[in-house]
Amino acid sequence: MYQANPYPPETNAQPPYPPQPYVQPPYAPQPYAQPQYGGPSGGNASGVWSSGLCDCCDDVPNCCITFWCPCITFGRIAEIVDKGSTSCGASGALYALIMYLTGHACVYSCFYRSKLRQQYTLPESPCNDCCVHCCCETCALCQEYRELKSRGFDMSIGWEGNVEKQRREMAMAPMPQGGMTR
């Protein structure tokens, strides 16, 4: 007996073969450029902060350093955000000087939060950058520090140390053997 055609009458065509999974082409080394952290695992590319503003206790040692001497944390953040164009010491000293003279180093540090957000397309949350820094400077610095850490930076070695670390990792990366495979 005749069976009805299970496919829609307007196309009356068979479905294509099952789709094949995408296979990423083999790794090809690229000339070295500035680190695109990310870090080794690709980091947080989703456009959201890796931790909340009030998650300071997620990194207790940094929380303590930031509470007692925020110029150290700020200097480390500034060196990474500026990609080594300013040193940790110079940024930290300027932060300390502004804090000593005006008591409002948050006016300076909020600009670095904005730069960090722009570099990694992070949202301006929970409110604008200046409000975050003026209301809770310590929490803001801790969050920025954790964000850079989650993106693969070793904050204690600075920008040049991270560049050298990435060079070593790229040199040690296994190269695929052979040609095209199926």
Rank of each mutant, 00 (worst) to 15 (best):
N5K: 07
N5H: 06
Y7P: 00
P9W: 04
E10R: 08
E10D: 11
P19Y: 07
P19E: 14
P21I: 01
P25E: 07
Y32A: 13
Y32G: 01
A33F: 03
Q36A: 11
G38Q: 06
G42N: 00
G43E: 00
S46Q: 14
S46V: 03
G47V: 01
G47M: 12
V48I: 08
C57A: 13
P61W: 00
N62S: 11
C63D: 12
C64Q: 05
I72Y: 14
R76S: 08
I80A: 14
D82Y: 06
S85E: 10
S85V: 03
T86A: 11
T86S: 13
S87D: 06
S87T: 13
G89N: 05
L94A: 09
L97E: 01
I98D: 01
T102R: 09
G103P: 02
G103Q: 06
Y108V: 03
C110E: 02
F111I: 04
Y112G: 07
L116S: 00
L116C: 09
Q118I: 00
Q119G: 03
T121W: 08
E124Y: 08
E124S: 15
P126C: 08
P126Q: 10
P126R: 01
P126K: 02
C127T: 10
C130P: 02
H133G: 02
H133E: 04
C135D: 00
E137P: 04
C139M: 05
L141A: 07
L148Q: 00
S150I: 02
E164K: 09
R167Q: 13
R168W: 00
M172T: 05
P174S: 12
Q177L: 12
M180P: 11
